[in-house]
Design a binder for these strands. Sequence first.
DNA 1: GGAAAGCAAGAGCACTGCTCTCTCAAATAC
DNA 2: GTATTTGAGAGAGCAGTGCTCTTGCTTTCC
Lengths: 230, 230
Amino acid sequence: MTDTPRQRQHRQTMADILRLAHQQLAAEGTAGLSLRAIARELGLVSSAIYRYVPSRDELLTLLIEESYTAYGDAVEAAESRIRRDDLGRRWLTIGRAVRRWAVANPAEWALLYGSPVPDYQAPPERTTAAGSRVPLLVLAVLADADLKPSADDPPMTAALHRELDRLRPQFPGDLKPEVLTRGLLAFSSLCGLVSLELFGQFTNTVTQFPGHLDHQLTRLGAVLGLPEPS
Amino acid sequence: MTDTPRQRQHRQTMADILRLAHQQLAAEGTAGLSLRAIARELGLVSSAIYRYVPSRDELLTLLIEESYTAYGDAVEAAESRIRRDDLGRRWLTIGRAVRRWAVANPAEWALLYGSPVPDYQAPPERTTAAGSRVPLLVLAVLADADLKPSADDPPMTAALHRELDRLRPQFPGDLKPEVLTRGLLAFSSLCGLVSLELFGQFTNTVTQFPGHLDHQLTRLGAVLGLPEPS
DNA sequence: GGAAAGCAAGAGCACTGCTCTCTCAAATAC
DNA sequence: GTATTTGAGAGAGCAGTGCTCTTGCTTTCC
C-alpha cells in the first residue's frame, strides 16, 4: 500500500539487475560482470544503470551479500534437519552441504572464497556477519559436543592462546582455545578441499569427489573429537 | 656466441615484460594486468607488445609458469635443508615455506590457488608438472615414513579406492590409498589455511598467523602419522 | 496547479585487448 | 657486395569497458 507504482518499478528493475548479474557471474566469472551488458539486456542505455547501482563495486558487494545469504541458508537448512545429538552427522552434513552449494554455484563460491577482486574491498560491516554463519555452525557443533582440551592438542604460543581466549565471548559454547583451533582447522580444510576441487587443482588426481569428501570429513570428525555419525 | 644482437635484445625485452608484469600483478592483482601499460612503461607503442606476447592469456600462462617454478624452488629449497629422517620437521618446514612464499607473493598465490581467471584455461601441459612439485614433496615425506593403513583410517568407497590405486605409480613410494588420502588432506588443509589468511577470511579472528599455522601443522602431522619434529 | 524528485537518453572521456597496414633497419642468402 | 628476407616498431582503428555530465520528460508530492 505504501509504495507507489514507481517504487514497485524500481524494485523490479533492481531485482532484474541482480538476476542478470548472477547469470553473468555464472556464465563469465567475476571479471565478466559488465554493467553495460546488464543495461543492454534490460533495454536500457548504459548510463541509466547508474540510477540503480552506483558502481561496479557496489554491484559486487550486493552479489556477495546475496551469495553469503543463499550459502548460509542452504547449509543451515541442511544441518537443521539432523538430530541435535548426532554430532558426527551434523558435521558431515555441513561439509556435504558446503560442497553441494559450491558445486551448484561455482562462480559465487569463487566470489566468496577465491582471490579478492583487485582494487575492491568488501565493506566488512555488510559481509562479515553473513560470512560467519557457516563457520559458526561448525563451532556450534563443537559447543554441543562439550569437548575438553586433550593431551593430543599440540602446544600453542602464549600470544595465540591469549588471542583465542579473548574471542571466546564471540562464539557459542565458551570454547577453549584448544578446541577452537580444532574447529578452525576443520573449516579451513573443508574450504581447501572444496576450493581445490572447484579451481581444478585435483584434475588428473581425484575425480570421485563426493566419496573423497566423505572420507576426509570423517577423518576430520575424528580430529575434532566427534563421535561417528549414527 | 650463437646469438645475434637482435636475439639478445629480444630476450632482454621479453624479460623486461615479465618483470613489469609481476610488478603489475603485485600492485593491482590479476585484473590489473594490462599489456598496454607494460608497453607504455617500456616506451613502446601498444601494438608493439604483440611482437613479444601474442595475447594477454599467453602472458598469464607465462606468469603462472614462472610463479609455480619460484614457488616450487622456494619450498624444495627449505625442505631440502632438513635431515631426511626428521619426518615431522620436513612436513612442518614444507608448511611454513608454503606460507612464507604465499605471504611474500600474495598475487602469485592468488594466481596459482585462487579463483580461475574467467575465460582462461591454463594449458595443462605447461602447468601441471610445475604445480605438482609441492604436493609431491608432501607425498615424499609420507613415502619415507613408510606408513601403513591403520584402523583409524575412515572407510572409502570401492570406486575411490580403485581410483587411488591406479594413481600409485605416479607417486613416490607406492603409497596405499589410505595413506594417500592423508597426504591429500594435509595438502588441502594447508592450502585452505593459507588462502583463508591471504584472502582475508580470518580478519577479526586470528592474527597470530605463524603461531596458528605451526599449531595446525603439528596437528596435521599427527593425523598424517608422522613423529613429532625432533 | 506548481515544485521537486526520479528516470532515461545521449554524448563524451579514458581506458582495455587486439588487428591491420606501413616503414625502416638489421640479419641472412647468393 | 648486393639483394632479399625477417624482425621491430609506429599509427590508425574496432569494439568493448566504467563512469560523468547535461538535457528532457514523467511521476510524485504539497
